[in-house]
Amino acid sequence: MTTATFTAEKHGLAAVGAAVQRHSMLLFDYFTQYAKVQFGYRADFFISLATSFAATCFQLGFVIVLFQKIPQLAGWRFPEVLFLYGFSLIPYGLFNVISLNLYNFGNNYIIEGKFDRVLLRPVSSLFQVLFETFRIESLQEVATGVYCLWWASRRLGLVWTPGKFAMLLFFGICAATIYMSIFVMLTTVSFRFEDRIGVSPPVWNVIAFGRYPLTIYNGTVQFVLCWVIPFGLASFYPSVRLLGRTVTPEYARLVPVVAAVFLTAAITLWTLGSRHYTSTGS
């Protein structure tokens, strides 16, 4: 069943191009629609921005305090750790902009039956769920991340070439895709088990592990963060490459591959899962 819908869309490159164009335009439309709603509740927006920024500051503060007590962490100096931390904030922020509906999916869409309306529209259901609400205030995480990179680069004397900027953008998007795919897969559990919260929250906390140098962890944790829930892989290897340090083994090349594999798996699981949607009683 699912392959039928997939192949129907893959009639040559032209069709793919048209689909990409249509979805980009729809993404823009959905975003402006959401922005119009938000502008109706201005105070709300500024309060969420403030709380979200405060949360970022607390987390960052922890790293800073830690490094006032110890000069190095398993061979990593403070500016380097801050660089890694800053890089990881970028995909995290990008993902958070669209993560709200995944977080609330079981409650809003399954239990309340809002998924009915999604299925009645001629647009991919995953696309609609991801882009129906945005957490615009999460862009502060991206901004904080960029600031950390800038500050650390100055301390380390790193030079940013256009090539490096492109690499940052590319890896940032790959990592955000990995984050998103992981949570999409976790969200599909809601199609089978009608629970309000779902299984995402504990995994959410694992993201924090990916912000530090992977080499500080033992082998099992490293393996999990690379190949099971690859938050570590997604942000550690790309930022190390940007930093110009060498680690062995070096997996930055695999990040786009992992992103593609995870995204495909997420879309497939979502399509299979949505067939189990049972709607509500009325």
Binding site: A8, Q33, V37, G40, D116, L120, P122, V123, R275
Partner: peptide, 25 residues
């Protein structure tokens, strides 16, 4: 259910209990 996206372009649906309009705008 198999050709959902093409199919829904050919139907209109109104659920009396629920609106499909954006609530706040």
């Amino acid at each position: 259910f198999r050709q959902r996206r093409q199919y829904v372009k050919t139907i209109g649906v109104v659920f009396g209990q629920r609106t499909q309009l954006w609530w706040d705008i």
